[in-house]
């Protein structure tokens, strides 16, 4: 969508509002014209195949993009006067870990291997002045460990990351992210690296964690089932663009975009074709910056034609809509 339409959620001003976000290297555009917002207490999912630009979107919001990447557009947080992308490092780092925080995809490498868990949690409290003394911060760290259901927090606190399992480390990451009661929590595939039983506990901790603090959640995943259990609303991303947005139930039952339909079909384990193959989306995700012009999905789309060589634009509202010339249910194809 080109211009962010005015809108408001029932519960007041949005916690996060992203308009026209672009991320690129000097040469390639990796995220293009992404606009969405997350209301207070709202849990919004961001889904899409690998390489569609989900992590870049999250990192751009946090201001943690790699040096070689540049972001432009307009990113605003509730209660912060200035636009984030153009703000200075001092202003941005003051928000990170305090007003907004993030849990990363890879728990095995996200923690400092040389520092005890307790200090890594205590640090985020000390940085933002939530606790002023080391001892108080350490005690609070142990409480936070208990709050993410880690058994024997006293003992875990004294450990180094390599002495913890992936699930335990991810809980530590969540404890760090929730420590200062953020307004916005971003989780980037927080359970992808975990096994299924651990996954379910982790998801519950995230949902409870944001609910307790009345925080907004931006939850990235490529697993529709996970998003369906966690989120109220979903953004579907492909080729660096948002191609569809909507309420979870509506989007899962009546997708408008062929890409969303493809994702749904691919995640439906019951559907096996005559040859015994699971359905997948035809073709593969192009490398970053190498998506077709016009509709980014057209080279893999069963419904595409000449018209799709121009970008279809956004149909509907920002909270619910799609970008497609031939949405599912229209007469075409």
């Amino acid at each position: 969508m080109t211009a962010a339409e005015p809108f408001a959620t029932p519960d007041g001003p949005d916690v996060l509002r992203v308009s026209g976000l672009h991320v690129g290297t000097g040469r390639d555009t990796l995220v293009e014209d992404v606009s969405f917002s997350v209301g207070p207490g709202e849990r919004v999912g961001l889904i899409g195949e690998s390489g569609s630009g989900k992590s870049l979107t999250a990192l751009a919001i946090m201001g943690l993009l790699a040096d070689e990447l540049h972001a432009s557009g307009d990113v605003r947080l509730r209660g912060v006067d200035h636009e984030l992308l153009t703000a200075g490092e001092a202003e941005r780092s003051a928000l990170r870990g305090d007003t907004m925080s993030m849990v990363f995809q890879e728990p095995m490498t996200a923690l400092n291997p040389l520092m005890r868990v307790e200090r890594q949690i205590a640090e985020v409290l000390l940085i933002h002045g939530t606790r002023r003394e080391r001892a108080a911060a350490a005690a609070a760290a142990r409480d936070l460990l208990a709050a993410v259901d880690l058994p024997d927090p006293e003992r875990i606190a004294r450990r180094y990351p390599h002495q913890l399992s992936g699930g335990q480390r991810q809980r530590v990451m969540l404890a760090i992210a929730l420590a200062n009661g953020p307004e916005l929590l971003i989780c980037d595939e927080p359970t992808t690296a975990l096994d299924v039983t651990v996954q379910a506990q982790m998801l519950r901790l995230i949902v409870d964690g944001v609910a307790d603090r009345d925080a907004a959640l931006l939850f990235i995943s490529h697993d529709l089932a996970v998003v369906a259990t966690v989120c109220d609303r979903v953004l579907v991303m492909y080729g660096g663009r948002i191609v569809e947005a909507g309420e979870v139930r509506q989007l899962l039952t009546r997708p408008q975009h062929p890409y969303t339909q493809g994702l749904l079909a691919a995640s439906d384990l019951e559907a096996v074709d005559a040859l015994g193959h699971l359905p997948t989306i035809e073709g593969s995700v192009p490398p970053g910056g190498r998506f077709p012009d016009g509709c980014v999905f057209r080279n893999r789309c069963p419904r595409g034609d000449e018209r799709c060589t121009t970008w279809p634009g956004w149909t509907g509202t920002e909270r619910s809509g799609y970008a497609c010339w031939y949405p599912i249910g229209s007469a075409h194809g």
Binding site: L64, F104, V124, I176
Partner: peptide, 26 residues
Amino acid sequence: REDFLRTARSKGLRPYQALVRHGLRN
């Protein structure tokens, strides 16, 4: 390039603080 350095920044450390507190010992 390490992930934990990004984590350190996500907690609110400036890039050079993250490097000094978490990076140099590694």
